[in-house]
């Protein structure tokens, strides 16, 4: 696939030095910002295709950068954080971040998340009417789900959840967003969500105990593995 323009926001020179060559080698062009102000200015001026953002910045909280960028643009934002607190990730996602990776991350996973986020951004430009990844295929127009070509019967709630996950395939979808998609209100009991994800896994996974399609992001939400 063709690369994009990535704004890398991190104050650790070591991480920048290590990531920049990797991102370039993967076909992206890279602009670096080492603090929050540079990041906001960079996002406004350079109009990147994606922002890779470290939450721990010297001059401001990374979450502020997210809200600043979101006020102007829908640029995908992937948060890099050494903070393993779920609440931080959820706050970042709620503010408009698209995904996150934990430090220390595996380069391959970061590159895959970048691809997923960019693909979704392109997808938004031209509305898609179907989705397919591996054995799973969804026809959004006819609301049909097929596994290995065989139609699968899903309840409306199950379908809505799967569709919400498929729209952001490869990216984490927070519990709040899934609850809103399935039940119409984001404050619903996450317990419902666990039950319905369980039902979906029964219908879609080869081994529901070891899901390969519907992945749990503990404490944050779920992710539909993208192809």
């Amino acid at each position: 696939m063709t690369g994009g323009h990535i704004l890398l926001v991190d104050d650790e020179p070591g991480i920048v030095a290590a990531l920049r060559p990797a991102l370039r080698a993967a076909g992206h062009t890279v602009t670096v910002a080492s603090d929050g102000h540079e990041a906001i200015a960079g996002a406004a001026n350079a109009d990147p295709d994606l922002v890779l953002l470290d939450l721990g910045l010297p001059d401001m909280d990374g979450k502020e950068v997210i809200s600043h960028i979101r006020r102007r643009a829908k640029t995908p934002i992937i948060v890099i954080s050494a903070r393993h607190q779920e609440s931080e990730k959820i706050a970042a996602l709620d503010l408009g971040a698209d995904d996150y990776v934990d430090k220390p991350f595996v380069l391959g996973i970061l590159l895959a998340r970048i691809r997923a986020a960019m693909r979704r951004r392109q997808g938004e430009a031209e509305p898609v009417d179907h989705f397919s990844a591996g054995r799973l295929a969804i026809d959004f127009v006819r609301r049909e789900v097929r596994l290995d070509g065989q139609p699968i019967k899903l309840s409306p709630k199950e379908y809505n959840l799967l569709a919400a996950l498929a729209e952001s395939a490869g990216q984490v979808v927070t519990q709040r967003r899934l609850l809103a998609a399935g039940w119409g209100r984001s404050e619903a009991d996450p317990q419902y969500l666990r039950v319905y994800i369980g039902l979906l896994r029964q219908k879609l996974e080869t081994n529901p105990a070891e899901p390969e399609l519907l992945l749990t992001e503990p404490g944050v939400g779920y992710r539909l593995a993208a192809g």
Partner: peptide, 26 residues
């Protein structure tokens, strides 16, 4: 400690992975 370990670990693992994955292009 886990925080302070993460940054160098991330850097090392990313650098090593870049060299292995994209060795020819670098």
């Amino acid at each position: 400690i886990s925080h302070d370990l993460r940054t160098p670990l991330t850097t090392i693992s990313t650098s090593a992975a870049s060299l292995r994955q994209f060795g020819k292009e670098i």
